[in-house]
Design a protein around this nucleic acid. Structure first.
Length: 613
RNA sequence: GGUUCCGUAGCUCAGCUGGAUAGAGCAACAGAUUUCUAAUCUGUCGGUCGCAGGUUCGAAUCCUGCCGGGAUCACCA
């Protein structure tokens, strides 16, 4: 807290002056005083006891006296056990507020000259986005914003997994069952339209597999390879192999993939058309969420990258070749396994692509940091990838970070596409907005506004409920998403925070008829007012911390606490009809700056504030 | 089995590099508006911080072991 520098310095001087001992700033422990004690800030003096060879109470009292006598900011103290509680002067608080009030873009740090790339979203093109993507996108987007506020030059990118067997399944099903329909003719959003054919493929495949299971060939297979397993278990385990070796649908899909890889014109045309439908759908979803990208990487363009890296790795002796021609790296010396990088047939695997893509990005942007927002099931993958890039001595190797997050579960357990429990992103957003609509209708505050304005407000409220519910949880923790709780608008929620902001805006609209210039005449600050200032003066630290740890949840919880303090203040203290003009000016300024901070933090979290609600 | 993450109130979550009597929200119950938006505020109820050791003046926090749960360990992506 830069606002407290003088007090901290004073403490060091006090120790020097009272005990003739030098302290470095790392040894100074300062906290906010707990509510149940008198004071504003607390120095913990236990650590000094050994050094100074005196009792905690004695040290606290001596330092407290010295500080009151020598520091203008300190007007009182109390020593309780090993804690020195200081009370700071009203001038101090007003000065802090004045500083915040006059700081343009308070909470943002100056450019630090470093470039960072943040990857998030990265969907497959065979299905629409779901709840898991929402967590991913919120985290990536918010981290991107937070890093910008910390002075980085940030590029947002996503990798679109637009090739492979999955999209071929959709393509095949569309050929078979599509009747030349398009999203437009069917009246369905493009990504959902394509996704429905993926589902149709799976259904047809399951049918085909069932028939196979009952056929002579299937029964014979079970007899010879069943090994005493029940037919159910056996055929479940055999499914993949069936797809690859027996299925006609599987063969057709694989053939389509091969045609795609050979650049067969008809296949490419179909592929482009269906992907374009998907992108249209994705873009609508991204718009609704309020996120955007600086660059897109398509897997169809990057999946062959990384071969050069194989060469150079082999030359450097980091990789080795097996007799069958496959290329490997051995990471057993750092507690990992052997990992294949090139198959014996010379084709590359996923991680090879990632090596190449990372190099490509470095060439494209010259970033020294890259953040990958990917679920924690890929923790090991990224550990391996980063280790390989380090051994290849890539210049960006030290700036790699896997922003790993836990899966989203439903109260009933994991989302499973087979059981139809996957929560669709578009549906979900629509639901929370509708919930906001019905809550709003009961209140009637915005009923007089034009419909388009109302819609915009309801969108902001609904999405804030959803987004806050997700982003308040620490990324690495697995979270349980209860749809019923996610639409709550009371208590620890996004709309609660918006409501604090809206109250402030309402006050400020009415305050415009007064002179609200801050003066030093107001000298009877209440605890509510001090607590609010104490909160808003923390913002830069919280933003820095969130940036250092890539953790937006810190900011989410901060915003909630600040909103809560404001609601309490609002309830307990008269603002516009304050007892004096000075008090009114102070409180409106305090309110305005609280609003400023809430707005800023909300923006960093990827949420918007309505002016009314 | 190896590696790794998680375990805090009935439920969902906070708890910063160790600091005072472990906090919020939801749920349940009881209150508050002649006054700036009641999506608000106040109060009551609710805890063996998974268990056991260790380090420390001090441990939910750090270390070790155990228990429970998830993820991962493919010539898949």
């Amino acid at each position: 807290m830069e606002f407290l520098n003088e007090v901290k310095e004073g403490f060091i001087q006090a120790v020097k002056s009272c005990f003739d001992t030098d302290l470095n700033s790392g040894e100074v422990l300062i906290n906010e005083t707990r509510k149940e004690f008198k004071g504003d800030f607390t120095f913990v003096i236990f650590p000094l006891v050994k050094k100074l060879k005196k009792s905690p109470a004695e040290i606290g009292d001596m330092l407290g006296h010295w500080l009151v006598e020598n520091l203008n900011e300190v007007v009182g103290f109390e020593t309780i056990q090993g804690f020195l509680n200081l009370t700071l002067s009203d001038e101090f608080w007003i000065r802090v507020l004045r500083q915040i009030n006059s700081t343009a873009d308070y909470g943002s740090f100056p450019a630090n000259g470093q470039k960072v790339l943040v990857e998030f979203a990265s969907p497959n093109t065979n299905k629409p986005l779901h709840l898991g993507h929402i967590r991913n996108i919120l985290l990536g987007w918010s981290c991107s914003k937070i890093l910008k506020a910390n002075g980085f030059d940030v590029k947002n990118v996503q990798v679109i997994n637009d090739r492979g067997i999955a999209i071929c399944k959709s393509m095949l099903a569309w050929q078979k069952f599509g009747n030349h329909h398009t999203p437009q003719s069917a009246g369905v959003k493009g990504d959902h339209f394509v996704g429905s054919f993926y589902v149709k493929f799976e259904q047809a495949f399951v049918e085909e597999y069932k028939i196979f299971q009952q056929s002579d060939a299937g029964q014979k297979l079970y007899q010879s390879e069943g090994n005493g397993k029940s037919p159910e278990v056996f055929f479940k385990e055999f499914k993949n192999q069936y797809f690859n070796q027996y299925s006609t649908l599987g063969a057709a899909a694989k053939e389509m993939l091969i045609k795609w890889e050979q650049g067969d014109p008809d296949t490419i045309v179909l592929w482009k058309m269906m992907n374009s439908w998907v992108y249209e759908g994705f873009n609508a979803t991204y718009d609704q969420m309020g996120v955007s990208f600086d660059a897109l990487y398509y897997e169809s363009e990057t999946y062959l990258l990384g071969k050069k890296a194989i060469e150079s790795g082999l030359n450097k002796g980091i990789f080795y070749k097996e007799p069958d021609g496959s290329v490997w790296i051995n990471l057993e010396d750092v507690g990992m396994d052997r990992k294949i990088l090139l198959r014996s047939d010379g084709t590359s695997v996923y991680i090879t692509q990632d090596i190449g893509t990372a190099q490509q990005r470095y060439e494209d942007f010259g970033v020294e940091k890259m953040i990958y927002t990917v679920a924690d099931e890929q923790d090991y993958h990224f550990k391996v990838l980063f280790e390989i890039l380090k051994r290849l001595e890539e210049p960006f190797a030290d700036g790699l970070y896997h922003l790993s997050y836990g899966m989203v579960d439903l109260p009933s357990g994991r989302m499973k596409s087979r059981e139809g429990t996957v929560v669709d992103a578009d549906d979900l957003m629509q639901e929370v907005i509708e919930e906001a609509r019905s809550v709003s209708a009961e209140r009637g505050e915005i009923a007089a506004l034009p419909q388009s304005e109302q819609d915009e407000i309801l969108r902001k409220i609904g999405l804030a409920a959803l987004k806050f519910f997700i982003i308040k949880v620490q990324p690495r923790k697995r979270m349980i998403f209860d749809p019923k709780e996610s639409v709550d608008m009371q208590g620890q929620t996004g709309p609660y925070i918006q409501n604090a902001y809206v109250r402030i805006q309402s006050v400020m609209r009415k305050a415009s008829s007064f002179d609200t210039t801050l003066t030093d005449e107001y000298t009877t600050l209440s605890e509510f007012e001090k607590t609010l200032i104490r909160n808003i003066m923390q913002m830069p630290d919280v933003i820095r911390e969130a940036g250092k740890t890539y953790d937006p949840s810190i900011l989410a919880n901060y915003a909630y606490n600040l909103a809560k303090e404001y609601h309490r203040f609002y309830h307990e203290v008269r603002i516009l009809n304050a007892e004096t003009d000075a008090a009114r000016a102070f409180r409106t300024t305090l309110s305005e700056n609280t609003g400023k901070v809430l707005l800023k933090v909300f923006d960093l979290l990827g949420m918007e504030m309505p002016e009314r609600m």
